[in-house]
Design a protein around this nucleic acid. Structure first.
Lengths: 340, 340
DNA sequence: CTTCCTTTGCAAAACGTTTTGGATCGGTGT
DNA sequence: ACACCGATCCAAAACGTTTTGCAAAGGAAG
């Protein structure tokens, strides 16, 4: 690596002092340097390809311009990619860069990784989970501005953003109701997590709001994967007065429902309409017909989280905020009117 | 943020000078400090929760201990997550951390992002693509140790790692041959990329090696997505002497083949065996029966790439190397003997 | 007792910035 | 002509490390 060009070289080339160069480039204290010289310095800097050393400036003003993103998992779904990209885009717009770190389930590894982030003097961190859940903030993070992404915690002092599970379910179910369905089944998750409860609540809300009475036999639970959905849907759809529409806990479950329908000789959406939640494009676009589903806004949550933590850093004092983000309906081809 | 504890606090608490602390912690020049005091210093440091400021040490020894990972896309598949995680794990083991940056297709954005990495004084970068392809290294990277991940370039001076496409195809096809198939169809990609040519070559290699004559009507091409696979398979499988097994360009294409089989009343694997390439677990585990496929080793490629760039950084001089990584067969349930 | 090592510890410089307090230099009012 | 003022610019200190040269202390050899 040829010796990189520093502020001194710029100063010498421009015929001014390093102070002047610094002032000219970070035009904060504007009146200290004449506009003409400022322009001159900038031209020289650009010509020399000067790129300020952020280690040095970070050391000097105790700001690394780095954000940490610690996430539990990263490889199983494209969700993590969406979160990361949202976080990155927002960070980039404000002159920051993000260090991603992920720890699997290993909390000791997580601790060491947070330590590394601290060593690199990250200005803040967003602590992310891949699936909406309650967490406890690792004590190593105390002292660093932190916001939660797709997770909540008991502490009202920490900001967080999660998808609005109940509203998402309402959106999904209302799409079915709007198409004319009244016998609507739901395949829920067995796990005891916020998504399970929130989506069930939204399901009931939507039915109630439209005065639809719910047949309790039309609510089943299963593993939140394709095979679980297949089995659950098989049960639901072989029922004599089977539901005409299925609201599935997730897109994978919905994929199982497609398989069950096919096995029973039912076609989607003519014989049974299906909606999911997730907008996993790999699945939703691949099914045939395409799966109408509600998108979990990982990208936007990522953006929000870093914007929030940057606000906390740059002008602290704003009260913490726990946000639930709305989830848009993505229409493809799996919802149609019930067969009369 | 309470004032962080620095090396001076440690020195004072341990009753020695900062020099001694530094030597005690980075036991490089070992003979400078007595083993006993070294242990003492370390204990004190741990008790105080001392974490060295890497901005400062990076500034001092011109090593940031940061690696850049620039990637084109990140949100569409879980592949990016696997690459990133592999890169991270390898980096972590060697005391580095990675800054991920992604630019979509925008080459001007890419340039600015690389500039940011440079400002943060990254010690090296791995330049990644999500799908194996030929690229040109952006000039902004000249001067920084760089290795290519899932991409190749004309320059023999830069190291790279890609999946071994032809060997992957051979592995897939041999699984079919081993099960007893001889009438094997292939659904290839229309796009002119290395994967297309490599996998076709591997297909032919495997057939030739086993003395199987190939019916050219059993080779079709289509869009590398589910609908493309569905259409292609529909054509292939409605043929009078249809193939008994299908080698699909990708798992998404294979998913389309499943749909075509179902539409024609054929069952997998009794009537038709299917293999894919990708090991997209979201799809392969969700299909029924599970999809036997060849895994693209994104995690391992990520590991290799950062280990290589770290070798280049820490002890330069090794000749560059272009590696093609083997791809393992992942058996699920979509391959069986042909119906006699 | 002197001399000469060896072992151990310290002071200070350096890395590339930002920023504070002052210096320089025209020009202006008296 | 003198003091003063505003506008520019500069020298130097500071951020938290690592490392180089040196000093002090102690032990062995003469």
């Amino acid at each position: 690596m040829t010796t990189r060009v520093g502020i001194r070289e710029v100063a010498k080339a421009a015929g001014v002092s390093v102070t002047t160069v610094s002032h000219a480039l970070n035009d904060a204290t504007s009146s200290r340097v004449k506009a003409e010289t400022q322009q001159h310095v900038r031209d020289v800097a650009r010509n020399l390809g000067y790129a300020p050393n952020r280690l040095a400036s970070g050391l000097r003003n105790q700001r690394s311009q780095i954000l940490g993103l610690v996430s539990d998992e990263i490889t199983t779904t494209p969700f993590a990619g969406a979160m990361i990209r949202g976080a990155q885009d927002a960070a980039y717009e404000r002159g920051y860069v993000v260090m991603v770190v992920n720890s699997g389930l290993d909390s000791e590894l997580e601790h060491r990784e947070i330590t590394m982030l601290q060593q690199h003097q990250v200005d803040g961190v967003v602590y992310a989970r891949l699936y909406h859940q309650g967490v406890e903030l690792p004590p190593a993070l105390s002292g660093i501005p932190t916001v939660l992404l797709d997770a909540v915690t008991g502490d009202p002092a920490v900001s967080s953003i999660v998808p609005d599970e109940v509203e998402a379910a309402e959106t999904a179910v209302e799409a079915l109701i709007r198409a004319g369905h009244t016998r609507i089944g739901m395949i829920n998750n067995v796990d005891d997590i916020p998504a399970t409860h929130g989506r069930l609540e939204g399901f009931h809300n939507a039915l109630r709001r439209h005065g639809i009475e719910h047949d309790p036999r039309h609510l089943v639970i299963g593993q939140p994967i394709t095979s679980g959905g297949r089995e659950a849907a098989l049960g639901l759809l072989s029922h004599p007065d089977r539901p005409t529409a299925l609201f599935c806990f997730s897109d994978r479950v919905a994929m199982g429902a497609y398989q069950a329908a096919a096995a029973l000789g039912l076609t989607v959406p003519e014989d049974v309409s299906i909606v999911g939640i997730d907008n996993l494009e790999l699945i939703a676009d691949s099914l045939w017909p395409g799966l109408t589903t509600v998108a979990l806004p990982h990208y936007d949550m990522g953006r929000w989280a870093v914007n929030r933590v940057l606000d906390d850093i740059e002008r602290p004092g704003a009260p913490p905020k726990q946000v639930r983000l709305a989830c848009p309906l993505i229409e493809r081809g799996s919802v149609g009117p019930p067969r009369t």
